[in-house]
Amino acid sequence: MSKEEIFEIIKENILDIIPELDLSEVTMKDSLKEIGANSVDRADIIMFTMESLNIRIPMVKFGNAANIGDIVDIMYEAKNE
């Protein structure tokens, strides 16, 4: 699975949780917080994406992720281990 594909899944989950957001404006450089996801939303977005990817990573590992790109990287590594 490519990083782009992971990014697409994240965007789907973002839309689920923040309805009517303009996804075309969301890039990997944005942080979930910046686009309007509160702390619970962020945890859910990450969890649902992990579920889609069938990977399991402790939530704390995402603590230092500064933006969506970082999140994608962490998941990409776990998926391709």
Partner: peptide
């Protein structure tokens, strides 16, 4: 199915 997939939002 998998403890990791218990929705965080459920706590709220």
């Amino acid at each position: 199915n998998s403890k990791e997939y218990v929705t965080p939002n459920y706590a709220i």
